[in-house]
Amino acid sequence: MKRNEYDVAVIGAGAAGLAAAAVTAKAGASTVVIDRDVRPGGVLNQCIHNGFGLHYFKEELTGPEYAARMIRKATEAGAIFRIGSSVMEISPAQADGRRALTLYSKESGVEIILAKAVILAMGCRERTRGNLATPGSRCAGIYTAGLAQRMLNVEGKLPGTSAVIVGSGDIGLIMARRLTWSGIPVKAAVEIQPKPAGLARNIAQCLEDFGIPLYLSTAVTKISGKDRVESVTIAPLDDPTAERVIECDTILYSVGLIPENELSRKAGVVLDPKTNGPVVEEGVYETTEKGIFACGNVLHVHGLADQASEEAERCAESALRSIGMR
């Protein structure tokens, strides 16, 4: 079993983790940034649309471009990468205040990393059809918007022939446009709230520009289909009898994001039931566990990647102070 020591261990190499690692490494702290995926960049790698970087880099970039710049920043600052590596556990603080991270990877097997400060930047996961318990069939053709995005943009696979978007989160809106451009007509986006969840610019550029109807205050009451989705039934909340059936073979769920904090919970970090993110001291970003910090979407879901990166830089400064390097 390999053992390595660093000043700072950052978990997650997305918009937040890369920005945090760049700051700590530049300050001279030995920094390792760990990610489960085989390439750093997190979800940015599948977001091939533009609109990233306007705040942080003052220019408009696509997701992979934003990721590439962040990776360069972290690399040039001297951060060490562990990709294809899953953190299985964060130990309680040892007598010297350090924590041991247990990593599994195909490359190195089991590796123990000792770090003076740990920065959580694991991002979030998508809520699913199962979380909502939408009634109906469990046939093929039901995806989270992010999974369909990955299959289309990274693997180049078409998820179906006609689609309905459930929810109106930004990934769902972006995917409505992406599917249309891929020859997959999008019949509707269905949002249970009276207002759309995504950014106004995405409503305009991804739905309105393509004439995709957005049904607000409307519930999905049934998914039908034997082997594959055949239709989805929707009904307005104020008149549940006014059901209508939309034929489609693909349903994408874009119904919210949940900070991915199971690792944090296991390490004893207390979570805020409102945000599902760790409870942290305002502006300090330290969790209830000493020496464990949190930033980006693992802390609370941000509207823009830029905001996650900016927050991560403030968090990294705070982590540096805690180990006496600021």
Binding site: M151, L152, G156, K157, P159, T161, S182, G183, D227
Partner: peptide, 27 residues
């Protein structure tokens, strides 16, 4: 590949099969 056999396929071909025809995209 399928979810559970029969016609429970996940995908309908690849992005390379999509062609722009006039004002629409077709598979």
């Amino acid at each position: 590949l399928t979810k559970r056999g029969k016609k429970s396929n996940f995908f309908n071909g690849s992005i390379a099969d999509v062609a722009f025809k006039g004002d629409s995209y077709e598979t």
